[in-house]
Design a protein around this nucleic acid. Sequence first.
DNA 1: CGTGATTTTTACCGGGCGGTCAAATCGATG
DNA 2: CATCGATTTGACCGCCCGGTAAAAATCACG
Lengths: 207, 207
Amino acid sequence: MTDSPPRTRIQARNRATILEAALEVFAAHGFRGATIDRIAQAAGLSKPNLLYYFRSKEALHLAILEDLMDLWLAPLRGMDPEGEPREQILTYVRRKLEMSRDHPRESRLFANEILQGAPRARPVLEGELKSLVDEKAAVIAGWSASGRIGPVDPHHLIFSIWALTQHYADFEVQVGAIMGGTDPYPAAEIWLEQVFGAVLAPPGETG
Amino acid sequence: MTDSPPRTRIQARNRATILEAALEVFAAHGFRGATIDRIAQAAGLSKPNLLYYFRSKEALHLAILEDLMDLWLAPLRGMDPEGEPREQILTYVRRKLEMSRDHPRESRLFANEILQGAPRARPVLEGELKSLVDEKAAVIAGWSASGRIGPVDPHHLIFSIWALTQHYADFEVQVGAIMGGTDPYPAAEIWLEQVFGAVLAPPGETG
DNA sequence: CGTGATTTTTACCGGGCGGTCAAATCGATG
DNA sequence: CATCGATTTGACCGCCCGGTAAAAATCACG
């Protein structure tokens, strides 16, 4: 009754509302810090009513995680082995940065999960994520070996892209405290292009 | 009775033990996820006994935060305006990476705090941290303007150093899942030197 | 508009958590 | 070894939280 595609209009609407509210609350307070009551309130429902749609807090969190995975990995999946290497990687960087700007809650929810030791997401990390990363790392290694980009450590390059882009979402408060009221994203976009442009440049070139 | 320098040997020993245990538990579970009971147990004390040394969970967390601040900002403070620019920055990167390797719990505790919106650390961010960062950013800007390093955005350069180095502590589980059992730090050190070396290079130079 | 399924509400439970209190124990000092 | 402060313990409180049960309200459909 709680799983499987929604059978009624009400179910579809409420499940979506709940997921949205839960994303907000989980991202802001982490799993333990979030309470069903708060999520229900944010969704405009009573607690038992929410539990009518999701068996448990755990199930709700898991549902979000699954929903998010596709969105989250899309930019990396979109990196085309047949494309122009430098452009592919810089596009990946740009799309990841847009992800932080447009979906900071998703970023913080993931960050929370990983920080706590990924108690719920570990299978995904070791399965889907690892194989995708290994696949794309191989592509980058190929580009690097053929001299189309400079010599790079593909895995650490990917880590760097994650770290640099997600930082603006996950540590938003800190960035904000230091930058005052200034929106960091325009400058960040330019900066990240500069950083990765420099790293990817084949030896002997100058930007 | 709970504040001020410890008056007895027992107090000094127990306060230290508690802080150590609390660091462990707070880093692993966040503020809300950590329980006084768990911390007390990890410290080998009873819950009321712990509360004899720290008035409340809040006070304990705050004490840790204060204790940590010096350790945490030391690498940035150590950046010498009179030193050789490239070396100063690369040394900062190296020291920050060592911080992630040798003090991952501290890193994760901070990350947790910031992620939750820095409810307890915000004053420090907007005061001490901001002024230190602004000061060092000005130094870097000077180096950049005088052409001793390439043109960089000082604030975003600092953010990048934080993001890249802390990533290895805060997202350790994810890095571990992808790298298998391999220790990422040796490769990370080389990689980060490569990255920042490339970014800092004055135009026209080649590494 | 009646009827059966769906949705929502009200009331509640058991456990855990932050914190208190008073009594008991320990430990240094004379 | 007596004494007094420092330390530790056990018992407890009130609140919140995740989750349940069953009745009540609502809805879709003939």
